[in-house]
Nucleic acid binder design. Structure first.
Lengths: 205, 205
DNA sequence: CCACAACCTGACCAACCGGTCAAGAAAATT
DNA sequence: AATTTTCTTGACCGGTTGGTCAGGTTGTGG
């Protein structure tokens, strides 16, 4: 039996090696994109042989697919956590903080996502049109309500969300450029206070 | 003689075919990155045979290098145009406009650049550390002066520049995602007025 | 400690990769 | 028109790619 039945409970070895493979694949895919990455690279990075990797996954695309699918969930969690639960402005600033923290702590995930979108999102186009759009529309409606209530300044909710994504992920995706320009300065600490200022000014009515 | 002497003036055919190749390469490299792109793809896109492409360029890397070198110049032009020449706030808003227009009119160039940075900028690291940093530092000093004169609000100049890059290029690099979320709405027109609002609020003391 | 399943790998394969080359076709020069 | 230069390509090459497979090794439950 060449392939693992996902129905059965995975063994200890399976869990360990699948994790090793996915971690190695994240490293390689996030740097070179799907087409630029090779199984040999992933195998070396994972410390396993190439055939052994194909014992755990159906192929290169299956690894990439698994990685991206798992990523989509955790990537949208911060936005899901945006609810009507106190001060709207503080709520949105918290969302910015959470997203910036993700850029700082999971830059590879951010870059993998960026790579996929850059290439036209061949694998997650459906998720963008469906799941993502639905979630964003829902949160945009919430923001629109806050605006109507006069709790934050009147701005386009969709573009507000875009700007939060853009500004926070920039520090992960363009890390090399940011550090080249800043020299020895620490990007993320500065970005935190800068973005707080920016969004406070933007959201204050 | 296999290679073209750049010292001699290029013939009509040379100009036409080199342009065809660079245009095709821009299309392919911007979508798949350096490693993910193939010469066959570029050849097909250009409507030329693979050996013919290698008649005009020294190899895959030479095409990529030529493309990136030419891009760096035009990509920084809008920032170079940022000078002390009237109202600082209007000056900066104009810069935002110019950058957004570039994202709208040259999305492939933006994505090529993004791809290179994502992969750690292996080819233009030197340019980032040198030319780019110098230019940004110069303009940051200019912005700092405006702040000191009280003409714009006190914010970190470097991160201000980052946020302009980030917010404008996002609409080119993440075009698929933006359009998926917005549905039938036209991104760039909306982005124009949104960003004008954002930066006006940010820069007003 | 045995038997069976799970795990691992060296050797191999067809397809594709970037790049070469000799020789022909088209332009330009005379 | 002749000739030289520029341009173009089919056939080919060594290396790499994703993937297979038979058979060996390791772990595990009885």
């Amino acid at each position: 039996m060449a392939m693992i039945e996902t129905l059965k409970k995975p063994s200890r070895i399976q869990r360990r090696n699948r994790k090793k493979i996915l971690d190695a694949a994240l490293e390689v895919f996030s740097q070179f994109g799907f087409r630029g990455a090779t199984l040999d690279q992933i195998a070396t990075e994972a410390g396993l042989s190439k055939p052994n990797i194909l014992y755990y996954f159906d192929g290169k695309e299956a690894i990439y697919h698994t990685l991206l699918q798992g990523l989509m969930e955790t990537w949208l969690d911060p936005l899901r956590a945006l609810v009507h639960d106190g001060d709207p402005k503080a709520e949105l600033l918290d969302y910015v903080d959470r997203k910036l923290a993700m850029s700082r702590d999971f830059p590879r995930e951010s870059r993998l996502f960026a790579n996929e979108i850059l290439q036209g999102a061949p694998l997650i186009k459906d998720a963008l049109d469906g799941e993502l759009k639905a979630l964003v529309d829902e949160k945009a409606a919430l923001i629109q309500q806050w605006i109507k209530e006069g709790q934050i300044a009147p701005i386009d909710p969709h573009h507000l969300i875009f700007s939060i994504w853009s500004l926070t992920q920039h520090y992960a995706d363009f890390d090399v450029q940011v550090r080249a320009v800043l020299g020895a300065r620490e990007p993320f600490a500065e970005a935190g206070s800068y973005l707080k200022t920016l969004f406070t000014k933007l959201l204050t009515p």
